[in-house]
């Protein structure tokens, strides 16, 4: 009985030593911070502030990365109109407008302008489906005579294996990143649309 008592004491000491050892090993592993500590977490806004819409007219805008171009959307309930302004000369003109109806919503994404401001893209909801439209910033038509390219329709014609989940922005002045998901399964891929050729290319990595 004394021996059993001695053995159980030794076992407890052994277990405590092992626990101590593993605790120290774990503490010495690198643990990067995963969140801002509480004092500052409360300062992080959870939503991007959006302008309070007036009953009749909603305005929103985005500037180009270099600040030289500004695209403004005016939604008066019946028409979406887009005005493009050169901020250095303060000269602006309506570059596109769309009557609401089948198109229930339009917006200007944060990354709307290509890096050298050659193109910009918009997002619209048409008959409940999201479409992404690309325009020449100069206002000129594309080679096929179209005012804009409907990326969603072009991609649907390119492949039926994937659907567009988001158009995120520009990899270069003429290369638009498109995130797609597989129609079957959970596959996610990033494609790029080369504007001059209007060809799609798999980027090879996914830009989440």
């Amino acid at each position: 009985m004394v021996l059993r008592h001695e053995l159980s004491t030794l076992m407890y000491i052994f277990l405590a030593s092992i626990l101590c050892m593993f605790t120290i090993i774990w503490l010495h592993q690198p643990h990067p911070p995963t969140s801002v500590h509480l004092a500052t977490t409360a300062l992080f806004p959870t939503d991007t502030p959006t302008p309070t819409p007036s009953p009749q007219v909603t305005m929103s805008s985005q500037t180009s990365s270099d600040g030289i171009k500004e695209l403004r959307l005016k939604d008066d309930g019946s028409t979406f109109s887009f005005t493009l302004t050169d901020t250095t000369t303060h000269v602006g003109s309506v570059i596109f407008f769309q009557k609401s109806g089948d198109v229930s919503a339009m917006s200007i994404p944060f990354n709307t302008f290509s890096p050298a401001n050659t193109y910009f893209f918009l997002q619209e909801t048409l008959n409940g489906q999201t479409h992404f439209l690309v325009f020449n910033t100069s206002g000129e038509d594309f080679a096929n005579g179209q005012k804009y390219l409907d990326v969603t329709s072009l991609f649907s014609a390119f492949t039926s294996d994937y659907t567009i989940s988001d158009v995120t922005g520009w990899g270069s002045d003429s290369f638009l990143y498109i995130n797609v998901k597989a129609r079957q399964g959970d596959g996610k891929v990033t494609y790029g649309l080369d504007l001059p050729s209007q060809n799609f290319y798999s980027v090879g990595i996914y830009f989440p």
């Binding site: 944060f110 990354n111 890096p115 995120t168 922005g169 990899g171 990143y177 989440p208």
Partner: peptide, 9 residues
């Protein structure tokens, strides 16, 4: 100035 894909790594 070489990309406009902010909001993504």
């Amino acid at each position: 100035y070489w990309h406009n894909n902010f909001g993504h790594p």
